[in-house]
Amino acid sequence: MSSPAYRPPDLLLVGPEHVRRYRETDGEVGYEWNGAPILLLTTTGRTSGQARTSALIFGRDGDDYLVVASQGGAPQHPNWYLNLLAAPAAEIQVRAERLRVRATTASDADKPRLWSIVTEVWPNYDAYQARTDRSIPVVVLSPV
């Protein structure tokens, strides 16, 4: 059985630099990354209590925003996801718009439909899932 196709992304804009450029330009720089839309997710650090911001690919399901806790197929969940499990109230920025959201992990019943939405946006998620034994969560960010 062959593993899903993987398309290496351009990593010129990642991490804190991506967040900084996105914020200072209201997404003019950084909203589109490797052909995928990006939002900024700000969570509350589960240990520090400090605001933590990540630039994440997203999909849409009606009014909800969908993000994937893939961490490239790493064996552990990303810190932003662990922060949301501890404190599901968060904020997102989509271009210049800032919204308060509440995070929930997609149920086993909803995940296949939502997974198809996010893999349409970023097909590499299938390759990431093939790299790990953990079930990669789809997170639903619902505006409040």
Score class of each variant (00 low, 15 high):
R60L: 10
G59Q: 03
L141K: 13
R98F: 02
L84Y: 06
E97I: 08
R95L: 08
R46C: 05
T105C: 06
A5Y: 02
N34W: 09
Y31T: 12
D61V: 01
V121F: 01
A55F: 06
L114P: 04
T43V: 04
L141A: 15
E120P: 01
W122T: 09
R113W: 12
S107R: 08
A55Y: 08
I92H: 02
L40I: 07
S116A: 15
Q71M: 13
A103D: 05
Q129R: 11
D61L: 03
A130P: 08
T42P: 03
D64H: 09
L39H: 06
V68K: 07
P137S: 12
I57T: 15
G73F: 13
L114C: 04
P143W: 14
L84E: 05
G27I: 04
L39P: 10
D64S: 11
V121K: 04
R20S: 06
V140N: 08
L85Y: 00
R102E: 12
P143T: 12
R23I: 04
R102V: 12
G73D: 14
I38M: 12
L85V: 02
A74C: 09
R113T: 14
R95N: 03
E24R: 15
E32K: 02
H18M: 13
T53P: 10
T42G: 05
L114A: 05
A109Y: 04
T119E: 06
V138P: 01
W122A: 13
G72P: 09
A5W: 00
V29E: 13
L12Q: 14
E97L: 14
E17K: 10
S142E: 10
H18L: 14
P78A: 06
D126A: 15
D108P: 00
L12W: 07
P112G: 14
Q71A: 15
P143V: 12
I136D: 01
P112S: 13
A86H: 09
E91L: 07
P137V: 11
M1R: 10
T104W: 07
G30W: 03
D64P: 07
E32G: 01
T104C: 07
A106K: 11
S70T: 06
L66P: 08
A96M: 00
R52T: 03
L40M: 08
R23P: 10
R113Q: 14
T25D: 08
G62H: 07
P4H: 04
T132P: 02
A109F: 08
P8W: 12
I136G: 03
Y128K: 11
A5M: 09
A96C: 04
R46A: 07
T104M: 06
W122V: 09
T43L: 03
N79I: 00
P75Y: 01
R134K: 12
N79A: 13
V121A: 03
G59M: 01
L84N: 05
S54K: 06
L99S: 13
S48M: 00
F58I: 02
L141N: 15
N124S: 12
L66Y: 09
R95D: 05
P112M: 13
P123R: 02
R100Y: 00
R60A: 13
D63K: 13
R23Y: 02
Q129K: 06
V121T: 11
V138G: 03
A90I: 00
A127I: 03
E32P: 00
V19G: 10
S135I: 11
G30K: 03
T104D: 11
G27T: 05
Q71Y: 14
D133N: 13
I57L: 09
